[in-house]
Design a binder for these strands. Structure first.
Lengths: 213, 213
DNA sequence: ATCGAGCTTTATGTATACACTGAGGACATC
DNA sequence: GATGTCCTCAGTGTATACATAAAGCTCGAT
């Protein structure tokens, strides 16, 4: 693994997990010492993070971790609704039905995953991730897929702000199941509607439970 | 101006203007000699270009200029329709009417700009650019604006493939005027419809006149 | 003649030294 | 005492030397 990948992964993880809080200045020398690599790979990692929007270059004086305000969350979900709504509709038109029928069935069984044996909900999020990937593939549009991928980074960050309690995850799973079902049924308008519904509920939950840092 | 900015601007321009054709391998040493800077700023420029999608890192063996196929154009416009349609609707809801009334009036006079005195259509494209900027500002959504900006780079590249004859530009100006008018009227659905119409005609024109490289 | 192994070459990946710029503080002067 | 100027310093921006790995070629063996 390249040193720049290592630096990038470490910094990205630290920012997403809110170990590096917004406003933190990431000095090159400091980070290169902390991560045990030289300045060059750190520079590359920082420029990649800046391109993603996780950091902002503070006018030649180092880069700082980007903040996420309440308005940002609204904007983020507005774009997300646009992109994922369209994606769900396209997936319903172009996707392979068996794939989404399978995902639908699995999502209906998702509550079984939400016992207390896995506090990080690893299996659950992996399943939801598979739905995202299936949609990405079904839409046959690399530009749209790319736009959604770059959004998801920020959304994971937002998710960490909210309390993902079992009750919400149960509801979310059934909303996801509805999306998969609509795609499997080849119904674009229904798929889009199910997505809109899910995202609105998601946003409400985030805003209701989010804890300011 | 930083050397990395210079390298970035030069390479970007060369790619957009099709002076560097798709498939061209951009070797760091070669480009650093050509541009008169060292490898470090060239590396940064190349990673920025790759993040934008103008180049692709070819598995450790240099970066190559990205190709744009006919399918890519379809995908590009599919995403563009999604984003700009939403943006036009939001602008109609949130924008300052006088701004778009003014742009509407100017766009109606656009045919005057399309005389033969400016073969590059500089004034014309500047006016259209001002409409884009006005929409970007009106939507009050930095994430959506950012997504559209990253798309426009590719669209400029596509535009260079098509013959932007005076006839098409006349029609496009009137389509743009319709969008501005709908936004000024505060009618989101109309603004979105006008945008859809414009983009479909744009795409048809590109596909009809495009010359393979 | 063809295939494969190993070497050579050439490119990127990394480290580090040097240059430059901007900010902050201390000192001197008014 | 306040303000302005200069100096210092910390940090990024750039250049370059070195490490490393992959692609292609050559030579040999089958």
């Amino acid at each position: 693994m390249r040193a720049s990948d290592k630096a990038y992964a470490a910094l990205r993880e630290d920012i997403i997990e809110w170990r590096l809080l917004p406003g933190t200045v990431l000095a090159e020398v400091e980070q290169s010492e902390r991560l045990g690599v030289s300045r060059t790979p750190v520079r590359e990692a920082l420029s990649r993070l800046t391109a993603e929007g996780l950091t902002t270059s503070a006018g030649g004086r180092g880069v700082v971790v980007t903040d996420i305000s309440l308005e940002d969350i609204d904007e983020l979900f507005e774009l997300r609704e646009t992109l994922e709504g369209k994606a769900a509709a396209l997936a319903a038109e172009r996707g392979e039905r068996p794939v989404f029928e399978q995902l639908h069935a699995e999502l209906l069984r998702a509550p079984e995953m939400l016992n207390d044996s896995d506090p990080a909900r690893h299996d659950y999020y992996a399943l939801v991730g598979r739905l995202d990937e299936a949609i990405d593939e079904a839409i046959s549009n690399s530009y749209l897929a790319q736009a959604m991928r770059s959004l998801r980074v920020h959304l994971v960050r937002v998710r960490r702000l909210a309390a993902d309690d079992a009750e919400r995850l149960h509801a979310a799973a059934s909303e996801h199941a509805a999306i998969a079902e609509a795609i499997a049924a080849g119904n674009p308008r229904l798929a889009e509607a199910a997505t809109t519904l899910h995202l609105h509920r998601s946003l409400s939950h985030v805003k209701a439970t989010h804890t300011p840092h």
